[in-house]
Design a protein around this nucleic acid. Sequence first.
DNA 1: ACGCTAACGCACGCCGCTGTCCGCCTCGCT
DNA 2: AGCGAGGCGGACAGCGGCGTGCGTTAGCGT
Lengths: 215, 215
Amino acid sequence: MTDRLPHALRSDALDNRERILEAARAVFAVDGLDVPMREVARRAGVAPATLYRRFPTKEMLVTEAFAEQMYACRAVVDEGLADLDPWRGFCLVIEKMCELHARDRGFTAALISTFPNAVDFDARREYALRAIGELARRAKEAGRLRTDFVLDDVILVLMANSGIHATSPTTQVTASRRFAALAISAFQASPDVSPLPPVARLAPPASVSRPSQVG
Amino acid sequence: MTDRLPHALRSDALDNRERILEAARAVFAVDGLDVPMREVARRAGVAPATLYRRFPTKEMLVTEAFAEQMYACRAVVDEGLADLDPWRGFCLVIEKMCELHARDRGFTAALISTFPNAVDFDARREYALRAIGELARRAKEAGRLRTDFVLDDVILVLMANSGIHATSPTTQVTASRRFAALAISAFQASPDVSPLPPVARLAPPASVSRPSQVG
DNA sequence: ACGCTAACGCACGCCGCTGTCCGCCTCGCT
DNA sequence: AGCGAGGCGGACAGCGGCGTGCGTTAGCGT
């Protein structure tokens, strides 16, 4: 009689929910976010309706699927921030971020994309960026990071990293690692580097895909 | 009576062909290669059948549409090769390539993708790579390019550059320019750089899209 | 054990893209 | 000017993804 919380899921429903998220994570990691919803459902051994009931839009599914990745992301940033050597911390963040993205193709897209409704998702993103900004400030102060570095350069590098595609996961990681090293090399303060061209304010592209969001 | 060349197109057909290619170039540049064939036809003011008659597969359309871009590509490479300072030539190639790709989103995909049938397309790609390889060799000899640079790094950078997306073309170019500068900065020989991690052999991904290529 | 209700999956209608067939048009040659 | 072939476009069927309504199943509380 008392109004139940609408969040009390039945045991089988909860089980399915977990399997859906697991399947989503797996397939997103390999094939990116553009896989059809039905494919996720198939892999989860669930009918489309079930998937849609639990996650009405792809955005919700993605947000929840990558929640733990976001934790990993935060962990990486915090680890870098905790390092006594700010430049080493900065490098670590770049490297780990690139690796994270190399291992999970969908995560890049999720992080790059902006989700109009997933506020906490955005918040975490902002937190990470802010932390990297702090790290960069300290690394500059230590004279290791080039002074014309701006925070947008991180986004630039992460976006760029997302453009790297390989056939096998191993190759993907190897390539990404090398790219990260190149990026770090580019960011390093050095006497004989020429100044960088102006920054582009990279607003992330539109949302993941068009749900039934028409007027 | 003598068997005519089958390539003798009628004037109106030739006109349509040109308009199709023009439309294709325009839309590919802005939206990439994933636009539907019908969209190209629409913009060209042509019925779908006409498009399909002239270019049975999207691959053919893409190949022909980007022919002149490939010329531009070759021109850039040759210009770099002609420069007396190999390092300056190398930088120029990187910069111009990135800009080319920034201005034309489809071109990146076209260059990155491998077309099973378009042999001359591949050939040009090979030519460009070979030339850049020569340029790199000379730049290394001059002591300006880091010695652990490998040719695959160019592909890595171009792929990465293709990952950069912006809302406006201007922003896109600005971002790409900065990225190119960063890449060059990373490639520059310098006393205080740490060695790079191993190279990933980046085979380009599969072809553009699956035409009716079934047995 | 029983019943209520949440949860499930099948199957449906809708839409956009693909590639092709066919009747009409028009270019170009005589 | 007349004719024929090459070209054109509208229309069609097939496919795949999307999102949902509905009858059935099974968890959970009494």
